[in-house]
């Protein structure tokens, strides 16, 4: 009986070696098949082709105030986006001017956007009734100076569509 037991143990020893090597080979077959087919790559490249790169339309990059060709935006300083923002990333600085009818009116002075505190939850864009906001396609936000992350979104010289009416 001892002899049989020894035989069984030796058999198991060699079987373990064989099945171990076979399992390694099965894994190597997968990697090997990709190695011989360079067409079906496994890894992805960093999108260096920034000029031709097309992101998805819904992609949430940085917040932007939409300006048309006449440098007009449609912000009417209702402050809804700033109130919806959970982090206080939007700060609307306005000035009061006298309108044509003699009543004082708020117009946008600076639309300040703090990218450093923005968490891209996307609550501001649907909150705007004037559809003045959208997210652009930028995906590289890193800068060396934190102050660069505070942005003024209205372009210099721009004015609001509502004040011009």
């Amino acid at each position: 009986m001892a002899f049989l037991k020894t035989i069984r143990e030796v058999g198991k020893y060699f079987h373990d070696i064989y099945s171990g090597v076979a399992s390694l080979m099965r894994g190597m077959k997968v990697t090997g098949s990709y190695f011989t087919r360079p067409g079906s790559i496994v890894t992805q490249r960093y999108p260096e082709n920034r000029d031709t790169l097309k992101m998805f339309d819904n992609f949430k990059g940085e917040l932007m105030l939409i300006h048309d060709e006449n440098n007009l935006h449609s912000c009417n300083v209702c402050n809804t986006c700033a109130r919806k923002c959970p982090n206080g990333s939007i700060e609307i600085i306005y000035k009061k001017v006298e309108g044509a009818d003699g009543r004082s009116k708020k117009i946008l002075d600076k639309y300040v956007y703090h990218l450093d505190t923005c968490s891209f939850c996307g609550l501001c864009v649907p909150a705007c009734d004037e559809l003045a906001l959208k997210f652009d396609q930028k995906f590289e936000h890193a800068v060396f100076d934190k102050r660069k992350l505070t942005k003024v979104l209205n372009k210099p010289g721009s004015s609001s569509k509502t004040t011009n009416e």
Partner: peptide
């Protein structure tokens, strides 16, 4: 790591197309 992330990329693309974000979609 390479093989898992290759397939995960496909799902993240679906998320990105519909929700706009890849990881923290809200």
């Amino acid at each position: 790591f390479f093989y898992g992330l290759r397939d995960r990329e496909k799902i993240l693309d679906i998320f990105e197309e519909s929700t706009g974000s890849r990881l923290t979609q809200s």
